[in-house]
Design a protein around this nucleic acid. Structure first.
Lengths: 224, 224
DNA sequence: TAAAATATTTAGGTTAGACTAAATTTATTT
DNA sequence: AAATAAATTTAGTCTAACCTAAATATTTTA
């Protein structure tokens, strides 16, 4: 490997990873939006990343970029730092769900491998962060995700909430109020085929949830 | 105030603070040595710092620099971050005395005020870091130091070790072996006027220490 | 106090990573 | 299939912070 990548490059790689996670390429424009810089600047940087040795991205003019093997490793390293930090900051310093991201966003680029190892060990090598996102392994591979959206479950099926993929903090707070947070066991007790509403029980409470909610809650289903 | 200073500028200010702590100016050359850059680069930067508004340093050609009030605040902020981080990393992640500095050196520039507050509170707002160095207060003033070198004490005087100012790690390990670390109570039981050796008791152990050691151990003397 | 040594500054150059404006390519409409 | 719109790239600037080499100033030594 080469000596450490700049913070800027780390940010590019992380965002390319997230944009291409489910296949496809990351477009110049999408990257620019995420990084809050101008598309022209992105073009310059991806050209550089594509022609560095080893190349960190695969780049075809006008077609966007994907990560190379080396680029992906570097991206997963940053993501691992970020998610471990989020978990660590919430556990030890009482950060709230929404305050933690910003802090981790800066720290992720400067912590040492030693620091990474120490916090991972201190937390017992967690597999998911507080948002339920999978944490890349120490050898920089992304664990398989066995969860599926709650919307795919039907009555009598049950499982454990792994992740809540809420874009806005308000919805997350709402779900928190219903006790629907990662780690909680739930059971589907009713399904309405017309509007796809699911009635879900979590502990003593139950709630009727629409598709726009059930599509964002991910469950690891109990084997029965 | 202006929006946050660059990491580079923070490093300049911190090092200027340390070079001028006991009076005098920080010379271009000394700064260059500490920052591992060329003197020519230092000249450029201090000119910039001196002509920024508000000015962060006072600069006279060929005479070196001192901090302005604003520069000192900024320097103390960085030093506060550094020392709180060292304390926190040792307490919560089991970092060793010598490993902790390097990590804090990078983190000090990127943690938020919120993070600073949280770790300070988590540790009960400590006054000194693990090396015994005073931690600047939250409102960015350096606490008064009531300690004096052990070499200034005479038999029957006793007090608490506040700080051990060892340049090399080896000497520090040696003193650690004798139980002479910050926080420990000691008593001077003998003094030799010829070589200035002091015999010191700490707990059950006692040791005879030369001036090159007693000059580096700082004691807050018991009021009797 | 002049010569030598050391310290500092000036001048000009480099790199990283952003920017703007203009040019070009690709995609979408009519 | 041309016209328009949207996305992307090129070309040239800018700033921060470093560098080297040469010039100048200060300090030390003989």
């Amino acid at each position: 490997m080469q000596q450490s990548l700049t913070i800027s490059i780390q940010d590019y790689l992380k965002n390319i990873y997230e944009l291409t996670e489910n296949g496809g390429n990351a477009s110049t424009n999408d990257l620019a939006k995420r990084l809050n810089i101008k598309p022209a600047s992105v073009t310059g940087m991806v050209q550089k990343l594509a022609s560095s040795k080893p190349a960190l991205v695969e780049y075809q003019k006008h077609q966007g970029v994907t990560l190379t093997k080396e680029g992906r490793k570097a991206a997963l390293e940053v993501i691992r730092h970020h998610r471990l930090l989020e978990a660590w900051l919430m556990q030890t310093l009482g950060y709230s769900w929404d305050a933690v991201h910003e802090e981790a966003e800066r720290l992720e680029h400067v912590i040492s491998e030693d620091f990474e190892r120490r916090i991972a060990a201190a937390m017992g090598h967690p597999v998911r962060d507080p948002h339920g996102e999978l944490i890349p392994t120490a050898d920089l591979r992304m664990p398989l995700d066995y969860s599926k959206p709650l919307s795919a479950l039907r009555p009598t099926q049950g499982g454990t909430i792994q992740r809540v993929n809420a874009a806005d903090a308000e919805m997350l707070r709402h779900l928190e109020g219903l006790g629907l947070v990662p780690g909680v066991k739930i059971e589907v007790i009713d399904y309405s085929p017309y509007d796809h509403n699911l009635t879900v029980r979590a502990g003593k409470k139950s709630a009727v949830l629409g598709l726009n909610v059930t599509g964002k809650i991910f469950i690891e289903v109990d084997r029965t």
